[in-house]
């Protein structure tokens, strides 16, 4: 389905994840973050760029991996994206919903 995000029409799936990561930009990130009541800081963006890089490389994303990234600890990750850090950050990063159970 299509959604209007930050003034542009972007294709998203039924859970609101971008179907094409290349359609992402910072304005899109800010708009999706606003829906989650998150105001993006530099730290948020660092995590988001890391997720996008990892996703591009085909790596499987998990909370644990983010915690070992050297960018944030697991606790800081939860503090940045309260109530579902991996899913929320992935949605904001414009990448598919992570399939990890850990």
């Amino acid at each position: 389905m299509e959604a209007t995000i930050a003034g542009t029409t972007i294709d998203v799936n039924d859970e609101g994840y971008l179907t094409d990561p290349s359609k992402w930009n910072e304005a899109v990130a800010e708009a999706i973050a606003a829906e989650e009541d998150i105001v993006l800081t530099d730290k948020h963006m660092e995590v988001i760029r890391y997720l996008r890089e990892q996703q591009e490389k085909g790596e499987k994303l998990s909370v644990r991996r983010v915690g070992k990234s050297g960018i944030v600890s697991i606790k800081e990750f939860y503090d940045l994206f309260p109530g579902g850090p991996l899913k929320k950050s992935s949605r904001i990063a414009g990448i598919p919903k992570p399939v990890s159970c850990v």
Binding site: A3, T4, I5, A6, G7, D14, E15, G16, E35
Partner: peptide, 10 residues
């Protein structure tokens, strides 16, 4: 900024 509504799974 324009409307930024996404339809979420409900």
């Amino acid at each position: 900024m324009e409307t930024t509504t996404l339809t979420k799974k409900t």
